[in-house]
């Protein structure tokens, strides 16, 4: 797993270093964005018990585009309160029947993409997902480099359909120790509304499925679905 992660970082670093050679030739365009996701996080624990919680997640993004290249950083976070059952921890399990659990969830995406066709792009997403339990600051972290495809299609001068799909193989750490691998797939689809030349609004649906395969032989499934609202503005 360590070798695979190193290779993923090397691949992204190589692309990032190669990019400025092209970027030096013409003007880059920058944009800022903010989004609000009304998310539902649910899943199945190893024993079969389901867990589910809803929470808003706030996010920001900064994006740079040069010719057919684009890249940027997104940060998002929210607090999910599980009243009854919560995700089972791969190590140091909580006692059954404990108090409601709140998990702070944050996601960081470092993205680099290239538009191979005018409306179709392939992109790499260096992703980090972090879950922290409020009870004892127990933390699980998922890291991986994913590959996705994105596209958009103008429906009218104001409306544009957009979407993306991809898969991220990830490794899982619990309190700093590697405890297994996960595979995450994500699908986003939405509509963009052009307010003016420099600003767009977006509304969309997001669906993520993640299967955690722990070294101890257990398996856990996470599903995060969200209704997303966003705004993007050119700088």
């Amino acid at each position: 797993m360590k070798n695979k992660t190193r290779f993923q970082y090397f691949l992204l670093a190589t692309l990032l270093l190669a990019t400025p050679l092209v970027w030096a030739q013409t003007e880059a365009r920058y944009s800022l964005g903010a989004k609000l996701d009304f998310s539902t996080w649910e899943g199945d624990n190893p024993g079969g018990a389901d867990f589910k919680a809803k929470a808003p997640m706030l996010g920001v993004e900064v994006k740079i585009q040069y010719a057919n290249w684009f890249g940027g950083l997104t940060l998002a976070g929210g607090e999910f309160k599980f009243d009854t059952l919560s995700p089972t921890r791969p190590t140091n399990p909580l006692p059954i029947g404990s108090e409601p659990v709140t998990i702070k969830r944050s996601e960081v995406d470092l993205v680099l993409g290239y538009r191979f066709w005018p409306r179709i792009a392939l992109f790499l997403d260096l992703k980090n997902v972090s879950n922290e339990w409020d009870t004892d600051s127990y933390k699980t972290e998922y890291n991986g480099l994913g590959l996705g495809i994105s596209g958009h299609h103008p429906l009218s001068p104001e409306w544009t359909l957009f979407g993306n799909f991809g898969v991220v193989p990830m490794n899982i750490k619990a309190d700093g120790q590697e405890v297994g691998d996960a595979t995450r797939s994500a699908l986003n689809i939405g509509f963009l509304y052009r307010i003016n030349q420099r600003m767009n609004l977006s509304i969309g649906l997001q669906s993520q499925t993640q299967i955690d395969d722990y070294d101890n032989g257990l398996e856990q499934t996470h599903r995060v679905s969200a209704l997303t609202f966003g705004i993007n503005a050119a700088l």
């Binding site: 684009f70 996601e107 103008p154 009218s156 957009f162 963009l192 052009r194 050119a234």
Partner: peptide, 16 residues
């Protein structure tokens, strides 16, 4: 010259 109806620059960042 004006930006296209859906300028790729203003599309939300695709994430996974």
């Amino acid at each position: 010259k004006t930006a296209p109806a859906a300028s790729p620059n203003l599309l939300p960042m695709p994430t996974l």
